[in-house]
Design a protein around this nucleic acid. Sequence first.
DNA 1: GGACTTCAATGGACTAGACCAACGTCGCCT
DNA 2: AGGCGACGTTGGTCTAGTCCATTGAAGTCC
Lengths: 244, 244
Amino acid sequence: MRTAKYHSIRDEILDLIAELNVGEALPPERTLAPQFGVSRMTLRRAVEELIREGRLVRRHGAGTFVAEPKIAQGLAVTSFSEDMRQRGAVPSSRTLGVDEVHAGAQLGRVLEISPGDKVVRVVRLRLADGAPMALETLHVPRSVAPDLDGDSLAERSFYELLAERYGVVLDGGVQTIEATVTDETESEVLEVPVHSPAFLFERTSRAVDGRVVEFVRSVYRGDRYKFKVELHPHDASVTRSDRR
Amino acid sequence: MRTAKYHSIRDEILDLIAELNVGEALPPERTLAPQFGVSRMTLRRAVEELIREGRLVRRHGAGTFVAEPKIAQGLAVTSFSEDMRQRGAVPSSRTLGVDEVHAGAQLGRVLEISPGDKVVRVVRLRLADGAPMALETLHVPRSVAPDLDGDSLAERSFYELLAERYGVVLDGGVQTIEATVTDETESEVLEVPVHSPAFLFERTSRAVDGRVVEFVRSVYRGDRYKFKVELHPHDASVTRSDRR
DNA sequence: GGACTTCAATGGACTAGACCAACGTCGCCT
DNA sequence: AGGCGACGTTGGTCTAGTCCATTGAAGTCC
């Protein structure tokens, strides 16, 4: 079997959820399992995924219910467009410049290439509902994207290009988030007063083969962008490590 | 059985991990399971918890290995002290003032009480390694903590007090994170120039009985505080919802 | 010596059933 | 009418086994 059963069951339950209102109960596990032709354990595994995603809630003895749509706009901000859509805004983008530079010491270190290696640098203004939201500077080793240029980025997202044209499969990355204020240049393109509050995101992404494929530095308008995080008591799992 | 087996097994595996170096393999599942006196499924469930916590990594066909200590200093910032310790700093606290006010319209709304109800307000300076890190203003309905005062907070954490003295069990909450700059007052106590970059946290916490038990507003120094988040490809689970 | 094959060991998925624990309802008793 | 207790329904945990998929090393062939 190519794809795991519990994964396709997950999708079938998703269809079921679509036909229910928030707060309504799913059929009991003992009904659903044979209906989908799987054992109860397998069904439960699929349900557990949906619970982790925040789409279902289980209440012992009562049933499994469709969860409130979650508010959380977390920090797994890997795609500007995805992020904006999730926040209910229409994303767009304007490329302000594309050039090729030598990595240099700092950039070479974070991209894990030689300081003399070439790097494509793309500066883009990111907009939400037509108004400036963030200024993004993208750095990609030339070796990762040999023929990347401004035209390519106009049509499709950088991540689509990576996957489809260069066969790069992303594995993960590290992102830091700092508080900052805008400088003259940033203020101008973002259309805010100088020294306005802003978020500074720095992200480094790695492919499954181990190469660093991008370093992105983004400045977000503090007056338009904020995080909303839902806290759950069991999040403090680290506390237990000093139990001895 | 009071506590689930897979939970105690989790702790036993934790002991096992403590005796191994990063990257070393755990004994295979088929060895461990009978050793702990459980079925393989139950053992796997315990291992899966530890994987979610980032302490173990599984490699199909190869084995289960002790993971690199994770960097992530995420957003589940429910306790200043816990947060600081995790970042390797020594937390401390100085209470700047405690008073009782009427809720008023705004505060009444977020705390879900009448505008005329009384609220305890505590202003505290939070320090890391002896230097100012954040200015925190805590609001608690008097009805939740009838005899709360400055002395109580000197000895124990607010959350300990809630749990042990008032029998309040926390259920969760919502936290927003914004970018801001310090005003005159904040600058003075935080010992930074006026209009320095800063994070503004606003947290509302709820007890299991449904009552809102606190509203906290914290201003963190932007030059000392930052987030570091590890990104994983499957985090983009939302993308799948438009598959139809 | 290097490339290929084979195979044992390991994690991944799944089943059919058992028993426990929480919830909520329905009926009985007061 | 109100409260209380029994019980059926639901999720929660666990077992002992089966078979599949991936890995990596040992062995084989050229």
